[in-house]
């Protein structure tokens, strides 16, 4: 029972990170119907910037997080402007391949700038271990879960209550109608990339703190899993991405704890396949009929 509770907390920890990254995927997909393969790399760069801010500049924790998020928001907007905007009206496949290209580009850029060897991420959060009975919870875990939840609530408020948030929802629902309503679509899309990338960067920092490492290919697997989380919850739906992230994190942790460490990834993929085969629109998705 204790082991189970312990794993439950670990699952929440990993799941909240996946949820943060998955939000970026789902927001971008919702608004321009593009699988932003570069999102995993944005997460990786976010982790690296935090690493640099923490080791070379010795910034306080909040500044480390904030600087990494702001820089990645700017880079995210720049990527959209340079690589995706010219392809807004091109076939979706071209845009997808461009996203793959951007992902490869960023990965190799990181290999050149930061060199392939993994670096040790410093413990940026104050480290204390709380004991409840026989369960141990580190403050890092608590902070990770807390920060993720805080930003998710913030995002939800932003999307529902503010004017920009409403514009985002409008554009993702019907771009042409949104233009007619006087919404600046380009600016809304840029804003979506900024928010998604900032959350992705936060996810990256938390991920690197949890696994105590930064390396250039660190974005690939969590990126893929976060994407699976987004699809699982119903791509384009923000609460779906959060739900999916927690489910994937939980499944992964539980498989690692009770079944097998080496098969954990395979089981995550198997879940994705099963969900897609029986409910292609994801858990929270609604079916849309294809019209001739």
């Amino acid at each position: 029972m204790n082991l189970f509770l312990q794993q439950l907390i670990n699952g929440l920890n990993v799941g909240s990170i996946y949820a943060l990254i998955a939000i970026g995927y789902t927001m971008v997909y919702g608004i321009i119907k593009l699988i932003n393969f570069a999102h995993g790399e944005i997460m990786m760069f976010g982790a690296y910037f935090a690493f640099i801010a923490a080791t070379s500049f010795n910034l306080p924790v909040w500044a480390v997080l904030l600087s990494s998020m702001v820089i990645m928001a700017i880079i995210g907007v720049a990527i959209e402007f340079i690589a995706y905007r010219p392809l807004r009206n091109a076939p979706r496949l071209s845009a997808l391949i461009t996203a793959i290209g951007v992902s490869l580009f960023l990965q190799n850029l990181a290999l050149i700038i930061f060199k392939p060897d993994p670096k040790v991420m410093p413990k940026i959060f104050p480290e204390t271990i709380y004991k409840i009975g026989e369960i141990e919870i580190s403050s890092t875990t608590l902070i990770t879960i807390g920060l993720s939840l805080f930003f998710m609530v913030l995002l939800d408020l932003f999307i529902r209550k503010t004017k920009q948030g409403r514009a985002m929802r409008a554009v993702s629902e019907d771009k042409d109608a949104a233009i007619l309503m006087g919404i600046n679509v380009n600016r809304t899309i840029s804003l979506t990339f900024a928010v998604g990338s900032a959350l992705g960067a936060l996810g990256g920092v938390l991920y690197s703190v949890a696994y105590i490492q930064v390396y250039p290919t660190m974005g690939v697997m969590p990126g893929l899993k976060a994407f699976i989380a987004a699809v699982l919850g119903g791509i384009g739906i923000i609460p779906g991405a959060m739900l999916g992230g927690f489910i994937i994190g939980m499944v992964e942790t539980m498989t690692k704890a009770y079944l097998s460490t080496t098969w954990a990834d395979a089981i995550v993929f198997a879940i994705l396949i099963v969900v897609l085969l029986f409910k292609p629109t994801g858990i929270l998705g609604k079916n849309t009929r294809e019209k001739v």
């Binding site: 690589a83 010219p86 392809l87 091109a90 071209s94 845009a95 391949i97 461009t98 793959i100 290209g101 951007v102 992902s103 490869l104 580009f105 990965q107 190799n108 850029l109 290999l111 050149i112």
Partner: peptide, 15 residues
């Protein structure tokens, strides 16, 4: 730099 060039070619080609 080869994969860097490779990915740039890919992006430019798609645009």
């Amino acid at each position: 730099y080869r994969l860097l060039v490779y990915s740039l070619v890919l992006i430019i080609m798609m645009i």
